[in-house]
Nucleic acid binder design. Structure first.
Lengths: 161, 161
DNA sequence: ATTACTGAAACCAGATTGGTTACAGAGGCT
DNA sequence: AGCCTCTGTAACCAATCTGGTTTCAGTAAT
């Protein structure tokens, strides 16, 4: 099973898309939504930053999206946080027996079917954007005007600046 | 990245398909092809056995396929060895903040896109059978008659019975 | 009975994960 | 200038997973 870095990264990007520009979004605000430690959020944001999906600032304005949310697909996020340096979904068993007709060629034979399966996964992820997902939530303006907001205002301490 | 149980399981099934019925296939023979410890092979074979893909015997005849190799897909193998009890590819971050409009619904919103991506992966794996892969290797008969065979005969100590 | 193999337990080292504390440094603000 | 907030890292931790190994009881064929 893959790590939860991917869904958390998606949640980070949705929050950046969902909040108006004048809201200062810090790792602590996001960590309150995810319900984890701010350092966890910063670590994942470092991946997103490295892949040019977001920009962060040492104080001041908080994090911002670097691309239009319509142009950030789930595949972009997946690639940013889940792909290792080996750049593969399926591991292969290394050092199979070179003297065995099966062992000597198994990895070569498996490569294409496993690559195609990975492509199918990636194609599916590529079809959904952050904007698509943000649409599934209540609008920020409606949230602020809702009766709920007052009760949980303290959870968004930096919401208004 | 997923574990190498899956490719090793595929290799086990290919060997069972590839070898003629009169060859006694033990965990040690397979471990020689994979180049690992026989216990590793037995552990993976236990998954395959639990999912009714193979039968094993305490001595005597060795392991056998329980289904025609055309009817064993890579998805069957993947499901047998890689799926956990939670039965999912992507993890979600649990205990997100129920008071946050995003956190309270993020997992619900992510479920469908992640499920579809997983389905795409599985559909792709379902299209390839063990028989398809076995076809990619030299036939057992040709191997036995080849010049190579004599040199590595000792690696298949139980080959002829 | 001997032999050969399976199945399972126990243990191990290394890697990964999510979590935490701590702190240097960047960059606003007064 | 000093203060304040937040980022980016490092260091550390416990839990889990993985592949590997040794050991051994049980099973089945000869």
């Amino acid at each position: 099973m893959l790590s939860s870095r991917f869904p958390v990264a998606v949640q980070i990007l949705i929050i950046l898309d969902w909040c108006p520009d004048n809201v200062k979004i810090t790792s602590e605000l996001i960590s309150t939504s995810v319900n984890t430690n701010p350092v966890i959020i910063r670590r994942i944001m470092a991946y997103l930053k490295k892949h040019q999906l977001i920009a962060t600032a040492s104080s001041s304005e908080g994090a911002k999206l670097l691309k239009s949310p319509e142009d950030i697909s789930l595949l972009d996020v997946y690639n940013a946080v889940e792909l290792t340096e080996e750049n593969q979904l399926f591991a292969l068993h290394e050092n199979t027996n070179p003297h065995c007709p099966i062992g000597s060629r198994i990895n070569e034979v498996l490569t294409l079917p496993l690559y195609e399966a990975r492509l199918a996964l990636e194609d599916s992820l590529a079809r959904i954007s952050i904007a698509d997902l943000t649409d599934e939530f209540i609008a920020f303006g409606d949230f602020v005007n809702s009766a709920d907001y007052k009760a949980i205002e303290k959870l968004f301490p930096t919401l208004q600046n």
